[in-house]
Design a protein around this nucleic acid. Structure first.
Lengths: 181, 181
DNA sequence: CTGATGTTTCAGTAATTTCTGAAAGTTTAA
DNA sequence: TTAAACTTTCAGAAATTACTGAAACATCAG
């Protein structure tokens, strides 16, 4: 499992970005490796390519599975597990997005909803609740939009973008049409 | 600087989510506190409210400033600095989004661009470059869209959402209109 | 200038997160 | 049922990240 310079630079970059993307360095590297490699890899191959322990690979795979980002395959006459990325690049992006929403936004929305149910008990809380309300609405709007965009195919998105008019123009236009009728 | 239960739960939640949102626990708490508090706060007030050292507040403020999320004010006859959130909730969300893009996406785009300039030197690299190309295009499309959405006011977004038709329907509709003409 | 009142920096420490490797667990073929 | 081939788990070690508090720095009023 010797990696060429270019491939290695990609894999290492995924590692460095890993923590920013929601997982840790090795998990990032593992994911990068699986994406960039045409064939599915065994745990041992991964551990050798990245110089990490076998146990760490196992934990990393578990983590990637919790993000629904890897698949396990089996080959006939072979008891080893072969790992490969789950779905197309687009699907992967969608999943990272969704999972991050679950981890980063949903808990906040739920806390805000709870807090907004109570009556404010003093002046400070009135202000606080106003702010919480604003944040709540913003997050709801955001997740709604995200879901809409994700439900579109990447081809459609690209086509639309290439039409030359920005999304906002498109929407302004439609807005006017709808309001007129 | 005694916090009511409800406000405290919000602030602590911001702390717990902090690391997921791109900063660390105390920075998250500090930001939550500034948002939820009507008046600007001094460094000492923050350190007392959150039970953290004065030095930590200073570093946290610096971090929040690097995200363009806090402002400093001065009051007449007072040499202390008063901190408050910069801009509306919408603007803050926009900034978090932008800054995260800078930290999470831009470096990757730049690496991919560099790698794509070179000719692949073997079969494996041909495959690797295909994948990198896909990722590159996806990220470009995504950032483009994000920018478009951010350029719209939240009121406009809300209005549109409440029209009842989903974004994708709106876009499909416009798409047809444009293609017809 | 000087001291009072503030802010920033940073070395050392504390807390947290990640990683290893050995032991335990699982599956399969014979 | 056994043993070979593989995976998972997890306690402790290593690495990383965050925090403190004291010293250095900055600004201003008198």
């Amino acid at each position: 499992m010797k990696l060429t310079t270019k491939i290695e630079s990609f894999v290492m970059h995924c590692g460095e970005m890993g923590s920013r993307w929601g997982f840790n360095r090795t998990v990032g590297q593992m994911y990068g490796l699986l994406i960039i490699h045409e064939n599915a890899l065994t745990a041992v191959e991964i551990s050798e390519a990245l110089n990490i322990s076998r146990g760490n690979v196992s934990m990393g795979i578990k983590e990637l599975q919790s993000w629904r980002l890897v698949q396990v395959q089996h080959k006939p006459k072979d008891r080893k597990e072969y790992y490969s990325p789950a779905g197309s690049i687009w699907e992967m992006a969608t999943r990272v997005f969704e999972e991050r929403r679950k981890r980063e936004v949903d808990p906040t929305l739920s806390l805000l909803r709870d807090n907004l149910l109570d009556e404010p008990s003093n002046q400070k809380e009135v202000y606080a609740q106003e702010k919480m309300h604003e944040i709540h609405d913003l997050l709801e709007t955001g997740t709604h939009w995200a879901r809409e965009l994700q439900s579109m195919s990447p081809e459609k998105l690209k086509t639309l973008m290439k039409l030359g008019s920005g999304v906002s123009k498109v929407i302004n236009f439609t807005d006017k049409l709808i309001n007129k009728s």
